[in-house]
Design a protein around this nucleic acid. Structure first.
Lengths: 295, 295
DNA sequence: AACTAAACATGAACTAAACTCATAACCAAC
DNA sequence: GTTGGTTATGAGTTTAGTTCATGTTTAGTT
């Protein structure tokens, strides 16, 4: 129905002011355009512009299309441009750092899929992770950082990958297991098991317990699977992203509970230098992540 | 080349995972799609996805197109929807208030053009103007406000119309006329002529002189043309938007000078209630303003 | 390794859409 | 009314898109 061709016509018509000029600009005959627009007007069942003035005067409907054209055409051009670029790419390495341990669950398959298309691009994610990777990104020692927190938004581009819910996991016979959701108070005396990350950088403290009193203990474990086993054995509770939790919960190994009445939703971003945001390889990595999110 | 049709195909392919399913979804034969995509791939000179997996696996190039589709298709649908709405509109009145006197210069022709298409919609701009119109917009006594300042951004939608430059105008033989630009200090002892608006709401004070010392006098005039005559006669200086200044300057009646080395650029917004931002009549008024800006 | 079912590819024939050409109609300015 | 510009229209042609019938590929099964 509406076509990119039509948007081009409308946009050019706005610039040139008449059908004849538009025809010349688009390498078509005036007749072709006259037919084209008449057909479009018939299909949309409305008039798009008045032809008896110079320049032509757009109707409200014409302006809506013009507005659409102004939004869409630049995007189409940008994509065409990226397509060309993507076919000959000098990049050979992506140095990636991950702030969220649980991400490896979907990240490894994602990287594998990505490497199918860019076998020459080596992804180096073998960095320690309990550190702040943003400075390394700024100083060009890293290319990409997977993170939930936005820092230095002026210097870096944060591409939103997806949102996830942080859930509390407890043993099925834990007293909290019956609750529809937990409050910060409920956690006051619990043992919280987590990856070895400083407390102030853990989502559950930073965004849930916050200033509430916490008298329980913190236990660090560097093995993801171990967390589930410890929780299942009733040795403590843990806060993990929903995508990690779901498979274990459906096995009945643990029970998951929302943090707060509304649950705690957190975003996941891919941070990169601002000038890299249009790079086709980066975009491909981004898109691959999005398609594989939370599985 | 790239067509909306193609974007639909790609988007559906992502959802359904195979050509056969996509064909069924789009009411086409599998063969048609196979041809369609082959043609597209030939034109773009790249492969868009691997067909030998289930679901199909997109190449970097395919993902770029998919990304484009996700951006563009919703906009196209929204426009189609607005087009339909625009053809039968119950609105019969637009109550408009204008915070910038100088806007009448382009606003009156704009309204005339607008009324060509919506003869039944009466625009009521006959309100006093040296007052803050935003509260009336919030309390539903107004529909639209033309303003340069954003207030209450949570409750109102501010559609950007255009940017303009505020210029200082002086008599051609005025001592400032030789300068490439003026500083706040240059104005210290000048007589500033303006519309009858309180000093703290005048752009030249709010955004240029600011806290700098001003020992000159303020003269109020409620007639636009009179300002030019007074300035031309050397009775004072004035700050006005570029679109008003240009015609008089080319006649040699006055001389205009940028405010500050970089000039003083100001935006112009059309403020409305948030739920009105998709209304086709409002959009048409907005678009008409944009097309007539600063003339 | 052979078989099967499901998915995709291909070529020829057909259809519908889009374009051109020639010409007519229209409008504004002189 | 004539002129110089514009847009509209109808018939004929070209091109792009579709279907049909059939061939090929692939993953999964025995």
């Amino acid at each position: 129905m509406i076509d990119i061709k039509h948007l081009k016509t409308i946009a050019t018509l706005k610039d040139t002011g008449s059908l004849v000029n538009t025809a010349r600009e688009l390498f078509l005959t005036q007749s072709a355009l006259s037919h084209q627009i008449k057909d479009l007007e018939n299909k949309l069942d409305c008039q798009l512009f008045e032809r008896k003035t110079q320049p032509v005067r757009f109707t409200p409907q014409g302006m809506l299309l013009l507005e659409l054209a102004n939004e869409v055409l630049p995007k189409v051009e940008a994509t065409k441009c990226r397509l060309k670029e993507s076919l000959n790419q000098p990049i050979s390495q992506l140095r990636l750092s991950v702030e969220c341990h649980a991400c490896f669950h979907w990240l490894l398959p994602t990287i594998k899929e990505f490497n199918n298309f860019w076998p020459d691009i080596k992804i180096d994610y073998e960095r320690g992770f309990s550190y702040d990777a943003i400075p390394d990104l700024l100083s060009d020692e890293l290319d990409l950082v997977l993170t939930s927190d936005i820092r230095e938004p002026d210097k870096l581009e944060y591409a939103h990958l997806f949102d996830f819910k942080l859930k509390l996991i407890v043993a099925p016979d834990h007293e909290l297991a019956k609750k529809a959701y937990v409050t910060a108070l409920d956690l006051k005396n619990e043992t919280i098991i987590s990856y070895p990350i400083p407390r102030e950088r853990q989502d559950i403290f930073k965004h849930f317990i916050q200033n509430a009193r916490f008298d329980g203990t913190l236990k660090n474990v560097d093995q993801g699977l171990l967390i589930f086993q410890l929780v299942s054995a009733g040795m403590g509770v843990a806060a993990l992203p929903d995508w990690l939790v779901t498979p274990y919960e459906s096995q009945g190994l643990i029970k998951s509970i929302p943090l707060g009445a509304l649950g705690l939703t957190r975003p996941m971003y891919l941070a990169m230098k601002k000038d890299m945001k249009d790079n086709p390889v980066y975009r491909h990595f981004l898109n691959t992540c999005k398609l594989n999110n939370g599985r």
